[in-house]
Design a protein around this nucleic acid. Structure first.
Length: 619
RNA sequence: GGUCUCGUAGUUCAAUGGAUAGAAUAGAAGUUUCCUAAACUUUAGAUGCAAGUUCGAUUCUUGCCGAGACCA
């Protein structure tokens, strides 16, 4: 039985015998650094029963625990805080076990099946910084769930159809002159993205010209006297700007020559037109090839990939099912809705009047497909928090349709990545491209390493690997150390700064350990004559690691692992600075410190492994 | 108009309702005859505002102010 369970049990018994409290749910916390002790029990809630001062109550309990638990060497009381001190022998025993067993993590998953969907890119543009956060969160959560004993299916749903891809296709047809990734040397996803941008630019020019012309001005005059205009007048928005954005879709769908061509192309795609399909296959192929390169560098992979071209019609049967059961209802125009007002939400459309699906219909169908394919206990979507509402609705609909898997849906909702100059906007060219960013951090790693000049004797390929490990590590860690749910700031300058709370700092700590182990002939645990403070701190830190791995799974949050590993690395550097390891006077102290160092190194490697980050042996 | 999320040192991030709110950076001052100084040590600096619940609130509730997202 682990020490916390023992303490909990004994404390409950003490509360019962002293104050007749029989149903106390108690917990211990780690003692605050400013006080002596290892674990703290807060007695304030029990003063009503004890009818004594906080200090006296805490002392009475402390006395009993000290008597009954061998590992407790003493206690101190500050106000209502009972600080229990564990003996050095206890911590040494913990270390000995840890050295013998390696890193162990409690199995909390019991082989439950989890399908995690992440990445989910569109095939009209290359990946950007936001996708990187998504992907590495996904990868990391997969690793974490596996480590906790879950059966994980890594899943991607590629959005490879729709109006946006037709835009790239049309632009390539009109202005591409047969350009290919081979002919241009441009990576496939970037090439397709280039034509997407080209389309948008051409459209903007066309639209602006029309707005300035006779018909555009006439529509603007009409708009100025409309009801929607009143709202903008209240907000003090300039009316011609407001009109420009209000009318854009109408223009695209009914007036724009290239807009209508794109719509027609989508129609042909849906009708299975051979020529359109061939172009679509060709250009998507370029994009997939490009994505593969990016995924590989990021360390991202999947067990199962769905393509939206196969799934976009799913869900229609379920609309029918919902209508029959009365979960959905039809409006006068023939559109199908669900009423979620009793859940505090609105009415939500699930099928348009013309019989076509909306986004959520596909998602209903795809959820069902997943369940048919995997019979999972839980299915997780790693998707940005701008879709919180969407997933709330999706889960409610599945529940109302009485789907057995509805409760297993979890939206791992992560925050947007902001730049110092504000939000990333593709239109304003402030999007941080994934490939460029990776290139940049790796080349910074190279530069830094060369400046420090400690890599003498390493081969060219070893060096290339090292730069990759350091650069990619820095990038991933920078994104993963922040609570996944929270919106975060990406500062390019800071991300290539390798001091402080960064991956290279932790990787450096690891190489220090690796270097020690190379110099030592053999590592085996021996009990030292005394335990120093910085040694004990290290043991305590290391001891909390496996709980953090459990917590990271329970809270869907890799940053908890990042934080523990960072604290561990910091503690190690302090220890390393204060005590000589290889040069320790007593042989048993040397063996102890070496085996402790080794265990710390293993923990760092293990934790970074869960984050999808490598560690170098030298740097 | 409605719903949701978020406001912590200059900046970027921490803190199951607990003690004197932690780090990192940037600032100031130090540490190399010694296992890798991408390190270590010292120093200064913060909970948007106002109520409420509680023995105790950064954390829970309400209102206001500010930032963002979504739905129609």
């Amino acid at each position: 039985m682990d020490i916390l369970s023992v303490l909990t049990e004994k404390t409950q018994a003490a509360l019962a015998s002293l104050y007749e409290i029989n149903d106390a749910v108690i917990s211990f916390e780690k003692t605050n650094d400013n006080f002596a002790g290892d674990y703290t029990f807060v007695v304030f809630p029990y003063l009503r029963h004890s009818r004594k001062k906080p200090e006296n109550t805490a002392s009475e309990i402390g006395e009993i625990i000290k008597e009954e638990v061998a590992q407790v060497s003493g206690y101190n009381v500050v106000k209502g805080f009972l600080n229990l001190e564990l003996s050095d022998d206890y911590w040494l025993a913990v270390t000995k076990d840890r050295v013998a067993e390696g890193v162990t993590v409690d199995n909390i998953g019991n082989n439950q099946k989890i399908v995690i969907e992440y990445s989910s890119p569109n095939t009209n543009k290359p990946l950007h910084l936001g996708h990187i956060r998504n992907n590495i969160l996904g990868v990391s959560m997969c690793n974490i769930f596996k480590e906790n004993g879950y059966d994980v299916v890594r899943n991607n749903l590629i959005n490879n159809r729709g109006i946006h891809i037709c835009k790239s296709m049309l632009a390539w047809q009109h202005w591409g002159n047969g350009e290919t990734p081979e002919s241009s040397g441009i990576k496939g996803d970037h090439l397709v993205g280039k034509y997407y941008v080209k389309f948008e630019k051409k459209f903007q020019v066309e639209y602006s010209e029309w707005l300035a012309g006779e018909n555009g001005q006439a529509q603007l005059e009409l708009f100025k006297t409309s009801k929607t205009a009143e709202k903008y007048i209240k907000e003090n928005t300039e009316l011609d700007k407001a009109f420009k954005s209000e009318y854009k879709n109408t223009y695209f769908n009914t007036i724009s020559s290239i807009g209508i061509q794109v719509k027609t192309m989508l129609q042909h795609w849906e009708d299975g037109d051979a020529e359109v399909l061939a172009l679509w296959n060709k250009m998507n192929g370029w994009v997939y090839d490009g994505f593969d390169v990016t995924y590989k560098r990021l360390g991202v992979s999947f067990d199962k990939i769905y393509y939206e071209s196969d799934t976009y019609l799913l869900g229609k049967a379920m609309v029918q099912e919902g209508l029959e059961s009365g979960t959905f209802f039809t409006k006068e125009d023939g559109s199908v809705w669900i009423d979620l007002t009793d859940e505090g939400l609105d009415e939500k459309i699930v099928q348009r009047a013309d019989g076509t699906s909306v986004y959520i219909t596909q998602d209903i169908g795809t959820a069902d497909l997943k369940y048919k394919d995997f019979k999972m206990d839980r299915f997780i979507y790693v998707v940005g928090n701008e879709q919180d509402y969407h997933f709330k609705v999706l889960q409610l609909i599945l529940k109302k349709l009485n789907k057995p898997y509805a409760d297993g849906l979890y939206h791992l909702s992560y925050g947007m990545v902001d730049l110092p100059e504000g939000k990333m906007k593709s239109r304003e060219g402030t999007v941080v491209d994934a490939d460029e960013l990776m290139e940049e951090v790796v080349s910074t790693a190279k530069k830094q390493t060369e400046e420090l000049g400690k890599t003498e004797g390493m081969s060219a390929s070893e060096l290339t690997d090292l730069y990759e490990t350091l650069g990619m590590g820095a990038l991933k860690y920078y994104l993963l150390k922040v609570d996944a749910k929270k919106r975060m700031m990406y500062d390019p300058k800071e991300s290539i700064d390798f001091q402080g709370n960064t991956a290279p700092f932790i990787q450096y700590t690891y190489t220090r350990i690796a270097s020690l182990l190379r110099a030592a002939d053999e590592v085996k645990y021996e009990t030292p004559n005394e335990l120093h403070e910085s040694e004990k701190d290290l043991i305590v830190q290391m001891n909390s690691y496996s709980e953090a791995v459990n917590a990271a799974a329970n809270n869907y949050n890799p940053s908890e692992i990042a934080n523990v590993i960072y604290d561990l690395a910091k503690s190690f550097n302090k220890f390393y600075h204060e005590h000589t390891i290889l040069g320790a006077k007593e042989a048993n102290a040397r063996s102890f410190r070496l085996s402790l160092s080794k265990a710390v190194g293993e923990t760092i490697k293990h934790g970074f492994g869960l984050l999808g980050i490598d560690v170098p042996e030298r740097m």
